[in-house]
Amino acid sequence: MSFFRDVSLPAVTAGFVAVLVGFTSSVAIVFQAATALGATPEQISSWMWALGLGMGLCSALPSLVLKKPVMVAWSTPGAAVLATAAAAGGFTLAQATGAFIVCALLMTAAGATGWFERVMDRIPMPIASALLAGVLARFGLDAFLAARTALPLVLLMLGAYLVGRRLWPRYAVPGVLAAGTAFAAANGQLHLAGVAFTLTTPVAVMPDFTLAAMVSLALPLFVVTMASQNLPGVAAIRAAGYRMPISKLITLTGVATLLLAPFGAYALNLSAITAAICMGPEAHEDPDKRYTAAVSCGAIYVVIGLFGAAVTGVLTAFPRELVVAVAGLALLSSIGGGLAVAVKDETHREAALITFLVTLSGLTLAGIGSAFWGVVAGALALAVQRWRA
């Protein structure tokens, strides 16, 4: 099998870092959403089972087929929407499950009709690259802001990165992760006590379809997932230079969400941040072999799904500063590449910078994140420039 010939240590490390960053940065929000909907501990574990399997299979299988890095994640802003709406509206888990199914149907329709890909085709590459750079730059900033609370750890990891880039570029990120983990372990900052590996039993919830849940849960979940997750996800794919069947991938995430929704998979979507980790040169020097990083990431997601909260406990045992530092350093090349493409063409430079700054600002309006508003602002700026010319 070609995968075993193409796979390498940096690719596997990139897959692990993507999982580490994806889980630890937002798993608390998912837990909060499930708790707000009244989920029991067994049902929360079932959410991890459904989300892990959904993300893992939707990442690994298309990557193997296409030989390109396809990265699928859960909708982090979608979880925030669920947590907020559930607390305000008093929805039950059954009503939320019905909303998950409706959202999945809308996502499937968006992919099957091809309208979302047609919208993405109209976004110029400099704007898409600025969008991606704006999404990723916050992680770059957080990597150095972590020095406020863990200066020795961040300095050690930065030093390991610089030395690694100078002496063995392909293994720079594995070296950063190893150095950070060793430092954290030596200082008693890894909290692995009490983690028991037991298989998770999925728990199905019978959906209850109500108009209130459709309006307050399903529609906002669909909008924020498409605008705040899938839009920068496609931008990440195109900024990395890959051509993929976007409509089919969106349809795949919709169908996977539909099948797994009764077990807690509220919304699956294309990833941007973890995708950049697996699509960058740190994953593999050969772009045609970076799919192995996505496959590795998907395999780890499947293991997380099977063991649920136990593996989540292992991932969350890493210090927060270690996670944000390794994420920021691993994304430096992607941030630089995105900015380079964004400002290269003078005719798009100003609009691209506006897109970058609005996206980086973290602005949220009407429950929709800054990625969407960054594209809107950049498109308006570009339209005014062209009209004036």
Rank of each mutant, 00 (worst) to 15 (best):
R5N: 06
S8R: 05
L9I: 15
G15Y: 00
T35S: 06
L37T: 11
M48L: 13
M55H: 06
M55S: 11
G56P: 00
V65D: 09
L106S: 04
W115N: 09
F116C: 12
I127T: 08
A133P: 03
L141G: 02
L156T: 04
V163E: 02
Y171L: 14
G175E: 10
V176I: 11
V176C: 07
A179C: 10
A179Y: 02
V203S: 14
M206F: 10
D208C: 14
M226T: 09
A236M: 05
A239G: 04
P245R: 10
I246F: 09
K248Q: 15
I250A: 09
T251C: 13
P262I: 02
P262G: 06
E282W: 06
P287M: 04
A294S: 13
V295A: 05
G298I: 05
A299Y: 02
I304C: 05
L306M: 10
L306H: 04
G308A: 07
A309K: 00
G313I: 11
V314I: 14
V314N: 02
T316S: 12
V324S: 06
A327M: 03
L329Y: 03
D345T: 11
E350Y: 14
A351P: 09
A352N: 09
V358C: 07
A366T: 15
A371N: 07
A377S: 06
L380W: 13
A389V: 14
